[in-house]
Computed example of a mutant assay.
Amino acid sequence: MEDAPYRRIAAAIAARIASGELPPGARIPSTRQLMAEHGIAMATATKVLTTLREEGLVEAVRGVGTVVGRSTPAPADRALVVATAVTIADAEGLPGLSMRRLAGQLGLPTMAIYRYVADREDLILHMMDKVMGDNPPPPLTPQRDGRRACVEAIARLQWTMYRRHTWLAQAVSFTRPLPAPNAMAHTEWTIRALAGSALPPPARFTAAVTIANYVRGTAVNLAEEAQAEQDSGLTEREWMQAQQERISAVLADGRHPLMTAFITGPEAAHFSLDGLFEFGLQRLLDGLAPLL
């Protein structure tokens, strides 16, 4: 596991190497020194050095011990690391993003990534915050544009983000939210857009989160569809066409006349997640309208 003790210790040493604190040729603590410093067993200390050696960061020198390798990659910066992680996730989803995959893309040893982020959860937090920061709330005001227009605009902006970054909905949580400043800025903006309405302050927060949660909840399907298309090689429309025979067999007994009328009618061809989002958003706004 990436959070195993030997990996954490190896990551800390790799960070010192990447920062230049341990230059090429510098001695690395021996297994006995690691045991004494970290209170670990011999086997764990050996794993630390083995991991660093496998990453190409250190090498054994006869008569000297383990030293930093002579050719270590130039360090990146966190902005580049996060941007590269976003690019990988956009193309392959969160399942395709690992520390090893990211390091390979950057031309760095895997352990060097831990200089910039604490772990995978921290990496995803920075990725989410980058996307939110790249998409600040729209330049609307409730006084000039109206509260409903403001709320609708922020919802559409977030839907666009989820459409562009299908992994994002999986990274966002409303029950265990990560402390992402730019994500908080979206919520703050929405609460401010509701100021002066009939909603009391606590209800404004609830309304802002309800709207964001609706968008995110619908957008989760985008990631699932992207993964399904990647796994099957079929687009949503192609997959539906391939299921026509099975669907027809289920509908043939006449027990679902209303479903049959829709599925066999012209409207079915236009049904999409975008349409589902649009219909639900307008009904949500209709429900808030008397209070806005």
Rank of each mutant, 00 (worst) to 15 (best):
L222G: 06
I9G: 01
A268K: 05
M184Q: 13
M259D: 12
G133D: 10
G63S: 02
H126D: 11
E152Q: 12
T72L: 14
A242V: 06
Y116M: 08
S197L: 09
M128I: 14
L102K: 03
I40K: 04
G107H: 04
M35I: 09
A261T: 09
L194W: 00
R7S: 12
L52E: 00
A208M: 04
T218P: 00
R27L: 08
L281P: 05
T141G: 09
L168A: 12
H270D: 13
A85E: 04
V151Y: 04
R115A: 12
G20S: 05
V81E: 03
S173I: 06
F174H: 10
R255G: 13
M1T: 11
M132D: 15
G25R: 01
P139N: 07
I17A: 06
G107R: 03
F279G: 11
D286P: 07
Q143D: 14
T260M: 10
V250S: 10
E59Y: 00
R7Y: 12
M161R: 08
P257N: 06
E224I: 12
E224P: 00
H38L: 08
I247T: 13
G63K: 01
A91Q: 13
W189G: 04
L258G: 09
E55S: 15
R62E: 15
A185T: 01
I211K: 06
P202N: 04
T260D: 14
R192Q: 15
A4P: 00
L57C: 02
R53M: 13
D119N: 12
Q244G: 15
D77K: 05
